[in-house]
Simulated assay, not measured.
Amino acid sequence: MGAMSGTAVRAGRERPAAPARGIVVAVDGGGTKTDAVALDETGAVVAHVRLGPSDVHPGREGESVSVVDEAVERVRTEAGGAPLLRVGVFLSGLDHEAEVAAYRARILPLPWFRGDDAVDAHLENDTFALLRTGTLAADAVAVVCGTGLNAIGVRADGATARFLAWGAVSGDWGGGTDLGTEALRLAARALDGRGPETVLTTAIPPRLGRPDLAALIEDVHFGRIREERLSELVPAVFAAAAEGDAVACALVQRQAGEIVGMAASAA
């Protein structure tokens, strides 16, 4: 998880004075990174930190909590140690009410869970953060396409459309890991003649520091490269598609279809 690594971003060299009336902290965590920002009473961002991934997976919830906890504490420090009025945490992987309840129980003992304004931390799936970043409309849909794929739909009458977003078992395909995995499969088939030729055979190995496709396949098989890292192949897929590679174009079009289908279903 790399909870101890990260960056802090500030407007100037000196740490700013703590906002007198306190700060609100918002955390957005996914499968690649975790961003935390501190905002003053006017809504201005006064501090920002970025750490490693904090998406939620069965059996790894503790790792996620550690990253989120560090993100909250570090961004508060970067904001001058201001009173912490309220915290909002929006994480990929909180797709079911049972997952939200279990995660809430883990962060409940943390000192920032109840803010100085006596309001408990708000905990939700990261789709809600994207939705309200893009629009305040009462009827709206947002699709998150990062390491995974998910969507949220809300209506003025309070109705909400959500997805389990648990991967293939819940009918999902199209996130970065899916795209990278499929790119590797298609490149392998091109290499041995079972599939059409594609520049992906030579374009994707360098993305993971391997000299050729055979070495990449071998290292994934023997666990020297975690399958989660296949999402790092996505830029090569889009670059190949932009150059007109038929295999890469078809793969990107398939992903686009999944995004449109999910948005339409959530509407």
Rank of each mutant, 00 (worst) to 15 (best):
E243D: 15
V247K: 15
A239D: 09
V199M: 05
L208R: 02
T202F: 00
T202N: 02
S231E: 15
F222C: 15
D245A: 07
P196H: 15
D245K: 04
T198W: 06
A214G: 08
L216M: 04
R224M: 10
E218F: 04
D212C: 00
P206L: 01
E232I: 01
A246R: 08
I217N: 02
V199T: 12
P196M: 14
E232C: 02
C249D: 14
P206G: 02
E232S: 06
D245L: 05
I225F: 07
R210F: 00
D212T: 00
P205D: 07
A242L: 09
A214F: 01
V237G: 13
P206R: 00
R210E: 03
A250L: 05
A214W: 01
R226D: 12
P235R: 12
I204E: 01
H221R: 15
P196K: 15
R210Q: 05
A215H: 15
V234I: 03
D212G: 00
A236K: 07
E227P: 10
A214P: 01
D219R: 08
P211F: 02
C249V: 15
A246P: 10
A242D: 09
R224S: 15
I204Q: 02
D219W: 03
E243W: 03
L251R: 12
L208T: 01
E232K: 04
A241P: 07
R229T: 13
I217S: 06
E228W: 12
L213F: 10
G223D: 04
L213A: 13
P205S: 07
G244I: 10
E197F: 10
A241K: 12
V220D: 00
G244K: 14
C249P: 09
A250P: 05
G244A: 13
A250M: 06
T202R: 04
R210N: 00
R224T: 12
V234S: 03
G209M: 12
A215K: 10
P196R: 10
G209Q: 15
L233H: 12
F238M: 07
D212R: 01
A240N: 07
L216F: 02
